[in-house]
């Protein structure tokens, strides 16, 4: 893709029970979700190994979203507490590495929050448009 046509690529990890259903709801409700997002469904946000997030960033994602059920609503008792713990690590990591903090997001979205999902994607997309492509992305010369 030529440089002037750059569009953010946003990687979102969604938990099967809440945020993925939320993304679904956004579709059913015919809300406009920017096409910048690429969703990976996991059974629970607790399955999102920080290594996946790092891998996403190295692959050149302009932002990575970690999403799951609201605290207390996790279908595997409390696995999303762990998600929150790991996010704290990731936040510090991304910041120290020298990436903009806006390249990493944590959001809790329930199955009924289609609107919230759509808004989140819009917000992230706008932010990323502002700060530009990820410096970790590798563009190969022709």
């Amino acid at each position: 893709m030529p440089e002037d046509k750059w569009e953010p690529k946003i990687l979102a990890f969604c938990c099967n029970w809440c945020s993925y259903a939320g993304a679904d709801a956004a579709g059913l409700e015919r809300r406009q979700v920017p096409p910048t997002i690429r969703v990976i469904r996991v059974m629970c946000s607790g399955r999102i190994d920080p290594a996946f997030v790092i891998l996403g960033l190295l692959e050149g994602a302009d932002a990575v979203l970690v999403t799951g059920c609201h605290i207390g609503d996790c279908h595997y008792v409390n696995a999303n507490n762990q998600t929150r713990n790991r996010y704290e690590f990731l936040k510090e990591f991304v910041d120290e590495l020298g990436l903009e903090p806006e390249r990493l997001w944590l959001r809790w979205i329930s199955a009924s929050e289609g609107l919230l999902f759509a808004e989140m994607v819009r917000e992230v997309t706008e932010k990323i448009r502002e700060i530009g492509p990820s410096p970790l992305r590798r563009d190969w010369k022709k």
Partner: peptide, 26 residues
């Protein structure tokens, strides 16, 4: 994990190995 998720064929600007080691030692 730092060895397993690292593939020498990747051409990332920093290797997964280094990233994961740093992360896991934080």
């Amino acid at each position: 994990k730092c060895l397993d998720m690292n593939d020498a064929r990747d051409s990332y600007v920093v290797s997964m190995y280094n990233m994961l080691r740093i992360f896991h030692l934080m």
